[in-house]
Amino acid sequence: MKTLPTLRDKKRYMAFEVMSEQVISRAELSHEIFASACSLFGDAGCSDINSSLLSYDGKYGIVRCAKGKTKEIRAALACISKVRGTRISILTLGISGTIKGAMEKFIQQTLINKSEPDKEDKQ
């Protein structure tokens, strides 16, 4: 049964970019984000953050979290340094209130900037 719209918790969508030695699978990254958040904030804190990996293509991804917990999920992502022995660094590109916004404003914009490096330097 669906939750009433007025009772739904507000969410934020965080776009991120992964830099790793080898390609990390979606399942591995999802598990690592959860483990990192749980290790930092405990089970109760993790339930408040309510994080979930929505999309990930091996390079860019979007993670969902509760509104007002973006700082916590940013810290949890920053604490991931190794996945299955592979060194990894996650850069947060930005936070949006919608998945569409996160995709268009951050991930697509980053890809456009990368394809036009001269334009980026001028800015």
Partner: peptide, 18 residues
């Protein structure tokens, strides 16, 4: 110690919030 260990200023600020 390597380029994988660098974190952006916003992430450093989030971690310092801890």
């Amino acid at each position: 110690h390597s380029h994988y260990d660098i974190r952006s200023p916003r992430e450093m600020a989030a971690l310092s919030g801890l």
